[in-house]
Structures are given as C-alpha cells and as structure tokens.
Amino acid sequence: MLDLIVKKNEALNNQYSLLVLTSPDKLPEMLPGQFAEVRVDNSPSTFLRRPISINYVDYEANELWLLVQIVGEGTRKMCELKVGEVVNLLFPLGNSFTLPESKDAKLLLVGGGVGIAPLLFWGSYLKERGYKCNFLLGGRSKDNLLQLCEFEQFGDVYTTTEDGTHGEKGFVTQHSLLQGSNFDYVYTCGPTPMMKAVAAYAAKTEAICEVSLENTMACGFGTCLCCVTDTIKGHVCVCTEGPVFNITKLKWQI
C-alpha cells in the first residue's frame, strides 16, 4: 500500500483521462496484466477502492500510468485529481500475461474501449524483449480509440469503429487482418462479448489465447471472494488467480 503523487492528469476526451502517478521512492516492479486498487477520497458515495489496470510503467521517469474511463462517481473523482494531490494505491495485484515461447511467434493484442489499458504495458514489455506485436483496437467511434500514438511505438496498429469514423467499420473480429493471417498468440481485454468473440476466433484458428477479466471486486487480494469466475477448477478469484486467464481454463461457451 503506497501513497503516490499525481504528476499529470490529462483528459483525453470527455470520457477518459490519463492519470500519471509518481513517488519520491522508486516504484515497485510491475508486470503487464496486473492492476491497482485505488482509494477514492472525498467522495461520500464511493466506499470501496476502484480496481484499475496498469496502463504503462516508465521506470526511468518513475511513472505509473492509469487510463481511467468515467463510469461513475469514483472514476469521476479520479479524473478530477489535481497535480500534486496524493492517491493511495494497493498494487501491484493479480497475475500477468504469459510470455510466448518463441520470439518469432505471431502475436495479436486485441483491445476494446478502456480494455486497451493493459495492452499498452504488455506491448511495451514484449517489444523490449524482442517480440513483434500487432495491435487491433476497437471502439464505438473514433473518440473511443485511445493512445494510438503510444501503441504505434510498440508495433503495428489496426483499428475498427462501429460507426466507421476510424479504421475499418464494424467489430474487431470483422477486421480484414483476421481474414488473411493466423496468429500463434492472441491476448485480449475489453467488453465481455468482444472477448468471447475474440476467444472464439482464437479457438477456431488454434491460437493460444489469454483474456483479462474485470469482475467487480471489493478487496483485490483474495479475501472477499466477490470477484469469482467459473473455471474448470470451480469458482476462483479473478483478483488473485487472474485477471489474466487462458481461455482453456474458463467455462466459456465459445
């Protein structure tokens, strides 16, 4: 549990903010896929912490990035934090994405909406280790496509929007990229229907597929037992056994 300081809080548009946090001390090691439980102060209607994916870590600048979508009062307060204010975080929590066995593996990272958040950190981590990434990012319209410039630093970027305002029109699973080529590994985070469609594509093409779940939770470290998902081992906590799961472990009908 650490108190971090707001270094920057940039509204990306009226729905999303990029919250950049820092500390006088060196930030702990974090892994792509992990998350933080953020305490929201000064909001009487916000009682529990908010689980937020780690979007990016810049160890040199000692920065932790959180991409925040305004969904309710808690996230609204987070987006209103001022530079210099202190935020209490429990982190890093949860497991991480699995590194592919071969550096030649063809990798596809599929994100939808705010679900792109952990994929930026994962993409940077993969690139640093000599892997080549393809990012397929989807949103309702171009306003929901975020951090495209950042993603371009770490691999090739493809986009879809439901209204056709950016990239190909339609859902991510309808993108032409998926028609021609097969991938060895598919990683995805976003709305559940999207992840299920991506998982079905991965299963059909025999790709190894990991999904990052975001069930509602109270504690974030395996004691409240509220965030469970149904797996072949029964109910397990998404916060400790996940948030990243290989789809072969989940009981998804795909």
């Binding site: 009682f47 529990l48 509602t216 409240c224 509220c226 965030c227 469970v228 149904d230 109910h235």
Partner: peptide, 18 residues
C-alpha cells in the same frame, strides 16, 4: 458459493452474496 455477481457497492457500504 453463489454465482457471480456477488457484490454491489451501496451508499456507505456494500452488499455481498458470497
């Protein structure tokens, strides 16, 4: 235990159905 969802935040508290 029960099926997910098992938790809901409410004003100054939470509901659970673990």
């Amino acid at each position: 235990g029960n099926q997910y969802p098992r938790m809901a935040e409410t004003p100054s508290g939470m509901l659970n159905a673990v």
